[in-house]
Protein backbone atom coordinates (compact mmCIF):
# COMPACT_ATOMS: atom_id res chain seq x y z
CA UNK A 1 0.00 0.00 0.00
CA UNK A 2 1.14 3.42 -0.89
CA UNK A 3 0.97 5.06 2.52
CA UNK A 4 3.68 7.30 3.85
CA UNK A 5 5.46 5.74 6.77
CA UNK A 6 6.33 8.26 9.52
CA UNK A 7 10.08 8.66 9.40
CA UNK A 8 12.10 8.84 12.52
CA UNK A 9 12.66 12.40 13.66
CA UNK A 10 16.17 13.61 13.56
CA UNK A 11 17.66 14.91 16.71
CA UNK A 12 18.10 18.68 16.44
CA UNK A 13 21.06 20.54 17.78
CA UNK A 14 20.79 23.42 20.19
CA UNK A 15 21.08 26.06 17.46
CA UNK A 16 18.45 24.44 15.35
CA UNK A 17 16.12 24.29 18.30
CA UNK A 18 16.46 28.03 18.70
CA UNK A 19 14.91 28.60 15.19
CA UNK A 20 15.96 32.26 15.16
CA UNK A 21 19.14 31.92 13.08
CA UNK A 22 17.23 29.96 10.42
CA UNK A 23 14.44 32.54 10.31
CA UNK A 24 16.98 35.29 9.83
CA UNK A 25 18.61 33.34 7.00
CA UNK A 26 15.28 32.79 5.27
CA UNK A 27 14.37 36.45 5.50
CA UNK A 28 17.77 37.26 4.09
CA UNK A 29 16.91 35.34 0.92
CA UNK A 30 13.53 37.05 0.72
CA UNK A 31 15.05 40.53 0.86
CA UNK A 32 17.75 39.57 -1.62
CA UNK A 33 15.08 38.51 -4.13
CA UNK A 34 13.11 41.66 -3.48
CA UNK A 35 15.86 43.86 -4.86
CA UNK A 36 17.29 41.37 -7.38
CA UNK A 37 16.15 40.94 -11.05
CA UNK A 38 12.47 39.83 -11.37
CA UNK A 39 11.57 36.38 -12.75
CA UNK A 40 7.81 36.95 -12.83
CA UNK A 41 5.71 39.04 -15.17
CA UNK A 42 2.57 41.04 -14.55
CA UNK A 43 0.21 38.70 -16.37
CA UNK A 44 -2.36 39.49 -17.88
CA UNK A 45 -1.31 43.15 -18.35
CA UNK A 46 2.01 41.93 -19.57
CA UNK A 47 1.87 39.06 -22.09
CA UNK A 48 4.02 35.97 -21.98
CA UNK A 49 5.77 35.13 -25.25
CA UNK A 50 7.28 31.67 -25.03
CA UNK A 51 9.77 30.31 -27.56
CA UNK A 52 9.34 27.52 -30.07
CA UNK A 53 9.71 24.92 -27.35
CA UNK A 54 6.31 25.77 -25.89
CA UNK A 55 3.44 23.29 -26.22
CA UNK A 56 0.27 25.33 -26.30
CA UNK A 57 -3.01 24.69 -28.06
CA UNK A 58 -2.59 22.27 -31.01
CA UNK A 59 -3.42 23.95 -34.33
CA UNK A 60 -3.55 22.99 -38.00
CA UNK A 61 -1.06 24.46 -40.43
CA UNK A 62 -2.53 26.47 -43.28
CA UNK A 63 -0.17 26.69 -46.25
CA UNK A 64 -0.49 29.21 -49.05
CA UNK A 65 -2.27 26.59 -51.15
CA UNK A 66 -4.59 25.35 -48.44
CA UNK A 67 -4.43 23.09 -45.43
CA UNK A 68 -1.72 20.49 -45.11
CA UNK A 69 -3.77 17.91 -43.30
CA UNK A 70 -4.72 14.85 -45.35
CA UNK A 71 -7.17 13.54 -42.75
CA UNK A 72 -5.23 10.37 -42.17
CA UNK A 73 -6.57 10.12 -38.65
CA UNK A 74 -3.23 9.18 -37.10
CA UNK A 75 -3.38 12.07 -34.64
CA UNK A 76 -6.84 10.99 -33.69
CA UNK A 77 -5.61 7.44 -33.15
CA UNK A 78 -2.60 8.40 -31.09
CA UNK A 79 -4.29 11.04 -28.94
CA UNK A 80 -4.39 9.48 -25.47
CA UNK A 81 -7.58 11.18 -24.27
CA UNK A 82 -9.41 10.90 -27.62
CA UNK A 83 -9.63 14.64 -28.09
CA UNK A 84 -9.46 14.67 -31.89
CA UNK A 85 -12.10 13.69 -34.37
CA UNK A 86 -11.31 13.70 -38.10
CA UNK A 87 -13.61 12.94 -41.02
CA UNK A 88 -12.09 12.75 -44.46
CA UNK A 89 -13.33 13.81 -47.85
CA UNK A 90 -12.02 13.63 -51.39
CA UNK A 91 -10.46 16.56 -53.27
CA UNK A 92 -8.91 17.05 -56.68
CA UNK A 93 -5.63 18.15 -55.19
CA UNK A 94 -2.60 15.94 -55.50
CA UNK A 95 -3.04 14.43 -52.06
CA UNK A 96 -6.64 13.33 -52.71
CA UNK A 97 -7.89 13.66 -49.13
CA UNK A 98 -8.74 16.59 -46.91
CA UNK A 99 -10.49 16.88 -43.56
CA UNK A 100 -14.17 17.64 -43.98
CA UNK A 101 -14.38 17.91 -40.26
CA UNK A 102 -11.55 18.34 -37.80
CA UNK A 103 -12.43 18.88 -34.19
CA UNK A 104 -10.28 19.07 -31.10
CA UNK A 105 -12.02 18.94 -27.78
CA UNK A 106 -9.89 21.24 -25.66
CA UNK A 107 -11.48 19.93 -22.49
CA UNK A 108 -9.99 16.57 -23.29
CA UNK A 109 -6.63 17.70 -24.66
CA UNK A 110 -3.73 17.24 -22.24
CA UNK A 111 -1.14 19.10 -24.38
CA UNK A 112 1.04 16.04 -24.73
CA UNK A 113 2.10 16.86 -28.29
CA UNK A 114 1.76 13.31 -29.54
CA UNK A 115 -0.49 14.44 -32.38
CA UNK A 116 2.26 16.71 -33.60
CA UNK A 117 4.82 13.96 -33.32
CA UNK A 118 2.81 11.39 -35.27
CA UNK A 119 1.60 13.63 -38.10
CA UNK A 120 3.17 12.49 -41.39
CA UNK A 121 2.45 15.85 -43.03
CA UNK A 122 3.63 18.20 -40.28
CA UNK A 123 0.10 19.50 -40.41
CA UNK A 124 -0.72 19.72 -36.73
CA UNK A 125 1.65 21.58 -34.42
CA UNK A 126 1.57 22.91 -30.90
CA UNK A 127 1.11 26.68 -31.03
CA UNK A 128 2.08 29.25 -28.45
CA UNK A 129 -1.53 29.92 -27.67
CA UNK A 130 -1.92 29.48 -23.93
CA UNK A 131 -5.02 31.51 -23.28
CA UNK A 132 -8.05 29.34 -23.52
CA UNK A 133 -11.28 30.44 -21.95
CA UNK A 134 -14.53 28.67 -22.68
CA UNK A 135 -17.94 29.56 -21.47
CA UNK A 136 -19.49 26.18 -22.08
CA UNK A 137 -18.58 22.70 -23.19
CA UNK A 138 -19.69 23.14 -26.77
CA UNK A 139 -17.45 26.14 -27.35
CA UNK A 140 -14.46 24.13 -26.11
CA UNK A 141 -14.74 21.88 -29.16
CA UNK A 142 -12.73 23.73 -31.77
CA UNK A 143 -13.59 23.19 -35.40
CA UNK A 144 -11.46 23.77 -38.47
CA UNK A 145 -12.18 27.51 -38.60
CA UNK A 146 -10.57 27.96 -35.18
CA UNK A 147 -7.79 25.46 -35.73
CA UNK A 148 -6.32 26.58 -39.06
CA UNK A 149 -3.42 28.99 -38.55
CA UNK A 150 -1.31 30.43 -41.39
CA UNK A 151 2.10 28.80 -41.58
CA UNK A 152 3.84 32.18 -41.16
CA UNK A 153 2.69 32.38 -37.55
CA UNK A 154 4.07 28.98 -36.73
CA UNK A 155 7.63 29.35 -38.00
CA UNK A 156 9.16 29.17 -34.50
CA UNK A 157 7.63 25.85 -33.73
CA UNK A 158 8.28 24.31 -37.16
CA UNK A 159 11.92 25.32 -36.91
CA UNK A 160 12.15 23.93 -33.42
CA UNK A 161 10.69 20.64 -34.58
CA UNK A 162 13.11 20.37 -37.45
CA UNK A 163 16.06 20.97 -35.17
CA UNK A 164 14.89 18.39 -32.67
CA UNK A 165 14.18 15.41 -34.85
CA UNK A 166 15.98 12.91 -32.76
CA UNK A 167 14.11 9.85 -33.80
CA UNK A 168 16.14 7.30 -35.64
CA UNK A 169 14.61 3.83 -35.92
CA UNK A 170 16.57 1.45 -33.74
CA UNK A 171 18.82 -0.84 -35.70
CA UNK A 172 17.73 -4.45 -35.64
CA UNK A 173 20.02 -7.27 -34.77
CA UNK A 174 20.25 -8.61 -38.28
CA UNK A 175 21.41 -5.27 -39.70
CA UNK A 176 24.52 -5.27 -37.60
Amino acid sequence: MNVNQPSERQKMTFWEKLYLPEIARGLGITFKMLIGPKMTIQYPEEKYHPGGYYRGRPVLVLDEDGERCVACGLCSRVCPPLAIEVRAGETDREKERYPVKFEINMLRCIFCGLCEEVCPEEAIVMSKDLEMVFENRESAILGKEKLLVPVAQLQDRLEYLRMHQYYEPPARAQDA
Binding site: C72, G73, S76, R77, R87, A88, G89, E90, E96, R97
Partner: peptide, 9 residues
Protein backbone atom coordinates in the same frame (compact mmCIF):
# COMPACT_ATOMS: atom_id res chain seq x y z
CA UNK B 1 -16.40 3.63 -49.28
CA UNK B 2 -13.49 5.77 -50.41
CA UNK B 3 -12.12 7.82 -47.49
CA UNK B 4 -15.21 7.42 -45.35
CA UNK B 5 -13.26 6.14 -42.39
CA UNK B 6 -10.04 4.49 -41.32
CA UNK B 7 -10.42 0.82 -40.64
CA UNK B 8 -8.98 0.99 -37.15
CA UNK B 9 -11.74 3.35 -36.10
Amino acid sequence: FRFKARVWE
